[in-house]
Design a protein around this nucleic acid. Structure first.
Length: 468
RNA sequence: GCCGCUAUCGUCUAGAGGCCUAGGACACAGCCCUCUCAAGGCUGGAACACGGGUUCGAAUCCCGUUAGCGGUACCA
C-alpha cells in the first residue's frame, strides 16, 4: 500500500508555525515512504476563509520548500459528496434527522451547565417515530442530520501516542450535516480522506478528541480507518498555546526577520521530533532518511526564538554568499540602500557574525553607504577614552595606508608595522579605524574591513573621522 | 465539571530495566584564541514532578496524586 498523507489547513489565518510543522511532518513522511503528499484547503467556513489567506499559506509552503504532489484541492467544492455521504448514513439509519432548533439546543446546554453536568445531546430526535418524522417534515420544519453514536469503546493505535481510547457513551450524537445542507467539519474531513484515499492522518494534538467521532463515521460508512498520528502542540515561552501576543507566529514573520527557509525548516523539524542521538543541523536528505513517526515526541514543545536564530546563524555561515545575495538585496532595498557594487565579498566578510539576513543587510549597508554610518554608544565611548590619540592614531594609520597595496595581507602587515614603530597598542590603532568605517566597535578584522570598503572610500572615512 | 492527552536541565531533546554518579544542543558564566565581535576549543552551574508498587535492580513498567495542555459548537 502506498502512503498518502495530506495537510489540510483552513484559510482563516496566516500559515502558523504549528501548521507549518504539521505540513513538514506530512511532507517528510511522504518523502520517506515514497508516498504522496496532498494539499487540501479546508474552506468550508465561508465566513472566515479568504483567498488572501490561501495565497499566504501557499507562499509559506513554497518558501519552506514543502512541495505537494496533489492539489491544492478545495474542500468547498465537494459539498455534493459530503451531502451524499450524510444521506447514505440517513438511509441506513446510522444517522437521523434532528428537528431541534438552535434555541432549544442552547436552552438544553444552559440547563446542563447550571446543574454542573456536561452537555451531551440526549438523542431525543433519534427516538422519533416514523409518523412523527413525517409530520415534522409535512410541517416544513428544518432539520440537521446527526450521527447515531454507538455505545462501547472507540479506540485506535495512535502512531505517536500509542493506544487512545474513548467510550461511545461519553460522546453524543453530533451533527454531521447542517440544516442548510452543508457538512460539519468532522464529516467533510472523513468524506474527503476516504475519497482521496488518505492512509495516514498526521495532524495536531488538538484533533485527538475529534478522532473518535471521525472513526464512528468511518465505521458507519463501512470504510477502513487510516492510521492516525497526533503531533504535539507548539507553545509560547510561558507554556501557553503559541499566539499573537508571543510575537511572531506566522512563517511570513520569520521570512521578514531574515530567517533562512532551510534554517526554519530544520528548526521546525526538531520541535517535537528527534532523529535520536545528537543530530541537529541536517541536510534535507538526512532529515528524510532519519524521519519516523515513532521519533515524534508526545509532549508539547516551546518555541524558542533564540535557538532558531542560533541555527539561522549556523546556516548563514555555511551558505555561499552568492546564495544570500538575493535575499540580502531585498532587505537592503527595504532599508533604502542602493549600490552598484559587487556585494558578494562584502556579504562574505560579514555573514559569519550575523544571525539573520537583516543583520547582514545592515552591516552591508554601513560598508557600502557612508550615509549609514552612525557612531554608536561604544564607538563614542572609545573616542572619548582615547581623547587626542583617537585622531592622532587615525592620521598615523592613514599615512601608513596611503602607499599600501590594497589587499588584506598587505594592509595587515602595514598596520602592524606602524603600530610597532610608533609603540601604539594594536587595538588602539585598529579600533579607531573600525569606528571611522562603521561607527561601531564590532566588525570583521580591520584589514578585511578596509579591503572590502575600498581604498579611496576607506581613506576618505578615516580622514573624516580624524578631522572631526 | 466531564472526557482525553502529557510530565528528564530555563528551553529543544537523548534515554525503549542494569551501559545513567542521566548524554548533546540553545541560553548563561569562566578560560583559551584574538585588533573588536562572532565562530571555534575547553571548563562550570543546571533536570528524571510527587507518592506508592513490580523487580536482585526503574528516568525507563504498573497504580494513584499533582500540575499543564486540548476538547466539550448547526467553528475548523
Amino acid at each position: 500500500m502506498t502512503v498518502r498523507v495530506r495537510f489540510a489547513p483552513s484559510p482563516t489565518g496566516y500559515l502558523h508555525v504549528g501548521g507549518a510543522r504539521t505540513a513538514l511532518f506530512n511532507w517528510l513522511y511522504a518523502k520517506k515512504t515514497g508516498g504522496t503528499f496532498i494539499l487540501r484547503i479546508e474552506d468550508t467556513d465561508k465566513e472566515r476563509s479568504t483567498e488572501t489567506h490561501t495565497q499566504v499559506i501557499l507562499d509559506g509552503m513554497k518558501w519552506l520548500g514543502i512541495t505537494y504532489d496533489e492539489g491544492p484541492y478545495y474542500q468547498g467544492q465537494y459539498g455534493r459528496r459530503h451531502r451524499a455521504d450524510a444521506e447514505a448514513l440517513l438511509a441506513q439509519d446510522r444517522a437521523y434527522r434532528c428537528f431541534c432548533t438552535r434555541e432549544e439546543l442552547d436552552a438544553q446546554r444552559a440547563l446542563a451547565s447550571k446543574t454542573g453536568s456536561a452537555f451531551r445531546y440526549d438523542g431525543r430526535c433519534g427516538r422519533r417515530t416514523q409518523e412523527d418524522i413525517a409530520a415534522q417534515l409535512a410541517a416544513g420544519k428544518e432539520f440537521s442530520l446527526r450521527l447515531r453514536m454507538p455505545e462501547g469503546e472507540i479506540a485506535w493505535d495512535d502512531a505517536v501516542h500509542g493506544r487512545i481510547s474513548f467510550q461511545g457513551h461519553d460522546l453524543d450524537d453530533f451533527i454531521i450535516l447542517r440544516s442548510d445542507g452543508t457538512p460539519i467539519y468532522n464529516l467533510a474531513v472523513v468524506s474527503d480522506d476516504i475519497d482521496m484515499r488518505v492512509t495516514h492522518v498526521i495532524r495536531g494534538d488538538d484533533h485527538i478528541s475529534n478522532t473518535p467521532k471521525q472513526i464512528a463515521i468511518y465505521r458507519a460508512l463501512g470504510k477502513p480507518e487510516p492510521v492516525f498520528a497526533h503531533v504535539p502542540m507548539i507553545l509560547g515561552t510561558d507554556g501557553k498555546k503559541l499566539s499573537k501576543r508571543h510575537g511572531a507566529t506566522a512563517v511570513g514573520d520569520y521570512q521578514h526577520q531574515g530567517i533562512l527557509p532551510l534554517a526554519m525548516r530544520n528548526f521546525l523539524a526538531l520541535l517535537g521530533w528527534s532523529p535520536g542521538g545528537d543530530r541537529e543541523i541536517m541536510a534535507e536528505e538526512e532529515m528524510i532518511s532519519l524521519f519516523s513517526l515513532e521519533g515524534i515526541q508526545k509532549k508539547a514543545a516551546v518555541f524558542d526564538t533564540t535557538k532558531l536564530e542560533w541555527m539561522n546563524g549556523q546556516y548563514l555561515s555555511a551558505r555561499p554568499a552568492a546564495e544570500l545575495l538575493g535575499p540580502v538585496q531585498l532587505h537592503l532595498a527595504e532599508m533604502g540602500v542602493r549600490t552598484s557594487r559587487d556585494l558578494i565579498p562584502v556579504i562574505d566578510a560579514v555573514k559569519a557574525r550575523s544571525r539573520t539576513l537583516v543583520d547582514i543587510a545592515s552591516q552591508v549597508a554601513v560598508r557600502v553607504d557612508r550615509s549609514k554610518i552612525v557612531r554608536d554608544a561604544k564607538g563614542e565611548a572609545l573616542a572619548q577614552k582615547l581623547g587626542a590619540s583617537f585622531a592622532t592614531n587615525l592620521r598615523t594609520a592613514q599615512a601608513a595606508l596611503e602607499a599600501v597595496e590594497w589587499n588584506p595581507a598587505a594592509i595587515e602587515a602595514a598596520l602592524k608595522a606602524v603600530a610597532a614603530q610608533t609603540g601604539t597598542k594594536l587595538g588602539d590603532l585598529m579600533q579607531p579605524i573600525r569606528v571611522a568605517l562603521t561607527g561601531g566597535t564590532v566588525s570583521e578584522p580591520v584589514n578585511e574591513l578596509l579591503a572590502v570598503t575600498g581604498k579611496e572610500e576607506s581613506l576618505a572615512r578615516i580622514a573624516a573621522a580624524a578631522g572631526a
